[in-house]
Design a protein around this nucleic acid. Sequence first.
DNA 1: CACCAGGAATGTA
DNA 2: TACATTCATGGT
Length: 203
Amino acid sequence: MNTFEKLYNDLKRKYGKPGGQWSLWCKRPKTKSEKEEVVIEAILTQRANWKNVELALNNLKKAKINSLRDVYNLSEEKLAIFIRPSGFYRAKANYLFHLSEFIIKNYGSLEIMKKVDTEELREQLLALKGIGPETADSILLYALNKPVFVIDEYTRRLVDKKKLAKNLNYDFLQNLFEKNLKKDYRLYQDFHALIVIDGKSGM
DNA sequence: CACCAGGAATGTA
DNA sequence: TACATTCATGGT
């Protein structure tokens, strides 16, 4: 067992199955609706406190906006009002609207989108405004069950602290984790969640 | 009251 | 390539 597999086992032993905010993202299998919720949350959670994401999500649910198609049928202005608590709301409304438009118009559903090659999907997502590597990979991993390892600030801190690498570049770290782990989306989902949970628990 | 959270785009040198 | 700034709300 290598360093990365050991690290996963340690975190798993310490925190168990990822809960709280992660119970949905790490749920398997997810319903169609749950996958779409993950896509929406992937945008809302950018540089935001999860509590604020929940407030925004509740606003959407109260307004019966539960799908990407619902989002696409809204105006950006109305969307912005609902997601206001998540911060950067004008920018996020714009990002989320265009992401929904992209998925609905090009694929119609996440189930059909999932059939496309992972690298191609990643390129397409990265071409959209407001979607960088972490958000793109979060959507691929948690909404489409594609085996791509998500890198974030907590991952960088952990890699730095454990001295697993000196280069903290996104693509480098992603490749580092992927080449040292079994290519399994379930492992990637839980591992990344545990890294964030561990990072937030102080220390 | 100051600080900051699952980022990403834009501007400057 | 490498930083600095901007976007914004609500929790602590």
